[in-house]
Amino acid sequence: MATGAVAALRNMKVAGNSKSLEEARARVFDFFKLACRSLPSVMDIYNLDDVVTRSQLRSAIASQIRKNSHVTNTKVIDMLLFKGMEELGNIVEHHKQRHHIIGQYVLGKDGILQDLSPKDEGSSDFLKNFYSGNYF
């Protein structure tokens, strides 16, 4: 299953514009499935088995997709899909390192901020915004 997904990623071509919202929607689901099917190999590559479960990562992918659920412009959806595909390709081809994956998908965006100790509570909002804005 995993190797099949990786091969599918390799052979991935940039699709043309979606003609309707329905088509774009179907593409999003296809992308989600492809991402889910490549999870086993991703967990192998980055040794994620002891930090996170596959279903947690699946939910992380879903929440990333859901973040853009308000978008109705098909061109924007296509662009987001392209970026997602690029990200997935980078992850599967090991162009990232373990802490990238952990920081971004295991801890999530709030992860670094949650880990602050109590004495950091008074730290400036500017820095917090900087961290969260600069983290992608």
Partner: peptide, 10 residues
């Protein structure tokens, strides 16, 4: 719908 796809993947 995304949740149900997620369940199917699970």
């Amino acid at each position: 719908s995304l949740d149900s796809v997620e369940i199917v993947m699970a």
